[in-house]
Amino acid sequence: MSLLEITNLHVRVEDREILKGVNLKVDAGQVHSIMGPNGSGKSTLAQVLARREAYNVTAGEILFNGKDLLAMKPEEAACEGLFLAFQYPVEIPGISNAYFLRSALNAIRKYRGQDEMDAMDFLPKLREKLKLLQMDEKLLNRSVNEAFSGGEKKRNEILQMAVLEPKLAILDETDSGLDIDALRIVAEGVNAMRSPERAMLVVTHYQRLLNYIVPDYVHVLVDGRIVRTGDKKLAFELEEKGYDWIIKEEAVTA
């Protein structure tokens, strides 16, 4: 059984069909990359997987760990082990990053019937992850994402992923807004989390990130459909020739 199995997914937003029949299987231990031009529906796919309600699923099925993902609320999907690193992380004024992280971890632990973690046990764990991402400890006491730089926000997403240890991590344009050093640190953080039990879905517009996080599969999403699947060489080809090439070929074969 695959960890994630998407079959014929159709999604509408405000009367416009954005996803037009997406099929995708992801097994535990694998890293898949979704590439595609701006507006092709990558974030829509990520958000639907995370169960954002503004999107209207008109057809299709998604199994996550064998369970019906489309029947889950966002918090249920999260507690089942699905994590989304946001393209645009949200600010929560007045709530410290550390408190937020512990609340989230405990919500998930509670759902799974585990004991809640107190601050004493939690802090060492948090510090260790912080080091991995070379983040300043001061960020723990600041309000969630408030007045964070673009790069800090993205790193903070990966920090959350490291603490929550999901089964499936979806990274939506985690590379955008990062300089090359930050990109390397983030990628190292992500790579440290690769494991046979965990799958990752790396959504990106550019090939650049894939130099650091090497995917097992690359899927190209154009206009709401996965039009091509290959290995990492496909990413290089796209980098060289751009998306137009694939779109044209599509038009010919269609």
């Binding site: 966002p74 918090e75 946001f86 937020f100 989230a104 998930i108």
Partner: peptide, 12 residues
């Protein structure tokens, strides 16, 4: 904001 927090596992 609500979606962000719920995606991290918090009830609405």
């Amino acid at each position: 904001q609500l979606f962000y927090l719920r995606q991290r596992g918090l009830k609405a």
